[in-house]
Every structure is written in C-alpha cells, then in structure tokens.
C-alpha cells in the first residue's frame, strides 16, 4: 500500500458503545459506592503515587467507568494501596476496594470468568 508520509490517525473519541465495560460492571456489582464517584479529585490530590507519577485516581475512575480498559490495566500497578484516597473521599467511595476489585476483574477476565 502507498506511503504518503502521513497516516490516518485513530480518533481520541471515547466510543462508549463499543468499549468493554465488564470491568466496571464487575466493580459496580461488588462495590456499589463506586457509582457515587463524582470525579472531584480529592483522591488524586492526596495520592502517594500521583505525587511522583502521572497516576491520577480520578482519571483512573472515570476511564474505568467508560471502559477504557487498556489504560486502566496499565495504571492499576501504580497504586500503593495506602488508603488515603478512601479517607478523604467526600462521597464515601471505597476507592481502595475499587482498585483491588479492578485487579481481580482483570485476572478473571483473562481467565474468561468475567
């Protein structure tokens, strides 16, 4: 095929309908408080990992809900599970459990259990 020195760019759009939201659904079912997240950013402001890396739990949460799983899977490792996010959350989201459940869901997804 011809090479013109430029390419067709993949859209940045979140294509909600074709994204896989099984990981999010898995968490919603087991940790309903996750639905309450309004992405205020209190968690990421205080996050141990977020102070030294690009990790943002706020961004993580929203992209997890949208089914942007490859991003989520990659970011997941950065959390140090310190629990400060849960402490500061004004909506009472058990953020630490969200991380653990995401971890679990990805393992099960690989084993086709989700």
């Amino acid at each position: 095929m011809a090479d013109f020195g430029f390419t067709i760019i993949k859209p940045r759009v979140i294509d909600y309908d074709s994204n896989d939201r099984r990981i999010a659904e898995y968490i919603f079912e087991r940790e309903p408080s996750f639905r309450l997240c309004i992405e205020c950013g209190a968690c990421s402001a205080t996050c141990s990992a977020g102070n030294f890396t690009r990790f943002s739990l706020r961004e993580f949460n929203i992209l997890l809900k949208r089914g942007e799983n490859s991003y989520v899977k990659n970011e997941l490792k950065k959390c140090m599970l310190c629990g400060k996010c849960t402490l500061v959350c004004p909506r009472g989201v058990n953020t630490r459990n969200v991380i653990s459940l995401a971890q679990e869901a990805f393992i099960k997804l690989n084993g086709h259990e989700v």
């Binding site: 940045r12 759009v13 979140i14 294509d15 909600y16 309908d17 992405e39 706020r58 961004e59 929203i62 992209l63 949208r66 942007e68």
Partner: peptide
C-alpha cells in the same frame, strides 16, 4: 467527557 478530557460519542 470533560472529566476524562476526551470527546465522547
């Protein structure tokens, strides 16, 4: 999706 910083369809 302003909180994700990306357009959404």
């Amino acid at each position: 999706d302003t909180l994700a910083g990306r357009p959404l369809r």
